[in-house]
Amino acid sequence: MAEVTLVEAVAMALGRAMDEDPTVLVLGEDVGRDGGVFRATEGLLDRFGPARVRDTPLAEGLIAGMCVGLGAQGFRPVAEIQFMGFVYPALDQIVNHASRLRNRTRGRLSCPMVMRMPMGTGIKAPEHHSESVESMFAHIPGLRVVIPSTPSRAYGLLLAAIRDPDPVIFLEPTRLYRAVREEVADDGAAAELDCCYVMREGSDLTLVTWGAMTRETLAAADALAEEGIEAEVIDVATLKPLDEETILDSVGRTGRCVIVHEAALTAGFGGEIAARLAEKALLSLAAPVRRVAGFDTVMPLPRLEDAYLPGIDRIVAAGRETVRFQ
């Protein structure tokens, strides 16, 4: 079994999916000879040829719209948007068409596409390369929004996303792309979509997070453990549709919850989780639900990005205060 990074696991899953299903196509900017700017499509052009691994003109609206046409014709396009900050021209196609083609034709046509894109800060990239706007997609009915947090989860969730009959927005945290290596078997086994994953068990506090913030959150849980606070860490993994059962079950046991995300606080997905807890777990709560999130600022350029990112200290402090709340 190979030890791979998250970005290598993405490439591995893409190769596997293309190998097992001739209708799977990879398209996007620089995905061919260059293998993608992060190398997520490395080697695919040589293995599968230019018909199935296609460099496109630099037009994100076109890329997303093509996927709608290809999907309706029975292909499974996997498109790469080079950075999340460049996805906005594609939103019209994602929101107005991909997410609703099945519904508006009463199931006659559908759009089994995956739209992959790197997200988030932490790699000192230029302006427009570091945003996290996952809640924008989570608001759109008909989509799935999936964010892996480890190499093995990236492999399994991406395979599941490609095999899924509906459009999936697959967000890959850039600062995890090469952060760790993990043994991942290229066995074609998909990971379950639409469910949360418990990354660490604990009975005093529930920490809910996703994507790159799982690393800081797990580190915070370790620090809290040194203070005698055992935190459960939940990786939401699929934001939409949300597996609220796992979160409600955990908070039902701990009575205390902190939600951690990198995206800006206001109208971030943490607000949705907090609302579900208010609706369905109020009587289990022993303390107010806290959110540790990015500031409601424009994402700063790289020299201030560390100050923007919710750090371990902020998560530990929020966890400690939540547990101490009387």
Binding site: R52, M66, G69, F75, N96
Partner: peptide, 23 residues
């Protein structure tokens, strides 16, 4: 395809459909 209400938004769908025929 069903009618497209957002103006011109059906054009990239035609690219995808045509690519499917070509493939």
């Amino acid at each position: 395809f069903p009618v497209a209400i957002p103006v011109a938004s059906q054009a990239p769908h035609a690219v995808g459909v045509a690519m499917a025929f070509q493939l």
